[in-house]
Amino acid sequence: MSLAGLTLARWRALDAASAERCAREAAGRAGGRLLRLDPAPHPEGAVHRAVIERDGERYALVPGGDVTVGFDMDGWRPLPGQLTSYREESLAGGFGFETDPRAHLARVMTPRRKVTLPAVLMAVEPRKLPELPSLVTALFAGQGLRLPRPDEWEHACGAGAGTLFRWGDGYPAGVSPYGGGTGPHLLPNAFGLHIAFDVYDSAEMTSDPGSVYGGDGGEAVCGGYGTLLEWLPLATANRNPHTADFLHGPEGEDMFEDFSARPVIDLD
Rank of each mutant, 00 (worst) to 15 (best):
D100V: 04
H185M: 09
V115M: 00
L132F: 02
A190I: 06
P126R: 07
T182L: 11
S176Q: 15
P133G: 03
E125S: 14
D100H: 13
D100M: 10
D201R: 15
V124P: 00
G162I: 00
C157Q: 03
R102C: 06
T110K: 14
N189T: 05
P188R: 15
L117D: 02
V221Q: 09
P130Y: 02
L135A: 15
C157W: 00
M205G: 13
Y213S: 01
V120D: 00
G96A: 10
A173E: 14
S90E: 02
G96H: 10
A138M: 05
Y171M: 07
S90M: 01
G158V: 06
Y225G: 04
Q143R: 12
A190N: 06
T182Q: 12
K128T: 14
F140W: 14
A138L: 09
M122Q: 08
G183V: 11
A161F: 02
L132C: 06
I195E: 05
L129G: 01
P101T: 05
F97W: 11
L121K: 09
A119Q: 09
G170F: 05
E152D: 03
D169L: 03
H155S: 02
S202R: 14
S176W: 15
P130E: 04
L164N: 11
A161W: 05
V212P: 11
R127C: 13
P133N: 04
P101C: 07
S202E: 01
V212S: 02
A123S: 13
E125T: 14
L193S: 03
F191N: 09
L129S: 12
W167S: 12
R149S: 10
G96P: 06
S202Q: 08
K114N: 07
D151M: 01
P188T: 08
S90C: 11
A123W: 09
G174W: 10
F97H: 09
T137N: 08
L132P: 04
P111A: 09
G180S: 07
A190V: 10
F140L: 15
Y178K: 14
R112V: 09
S176F: 14
G93V: 09
H155E: 01
V108S: 05
N189P: 07
A92F: 07
K114F: 01
R102W: 12
V199N: 08
A173C: 07
S207A: 14
G223N: 07
A92W: 12
L147C: 06
R107W: 05
A123T: 10
P133R: 08
F140P: 08
L132N: 04
A141H: 09
F95M: 11
S207V: 01
G94L: 01
F197S: 15
L91R: 12
P177D: 00
P133F: 10
G162V: 05
V212T: 02
L145Q: 13
A119S: 11
V108E: 05
F165E: 04
L129P: 00
G218Q: 11
V175Y: 06
C157Y: 02
G170R: 10
V221L: 13
P133E: 03
D169T: 08
L145I: 06
D216N: 14
F97L: 15
L139H: 13
T116Y: 03
N189V: 04
V124I: 06
M109Y: 05
P172F: 08
G160V: 07
T206Y: 04
G168S: 11
D169V: 08
A156T: 05
L164R: 12
A92R: 15
T182R: 13
R149V: 12
L147Y: 03
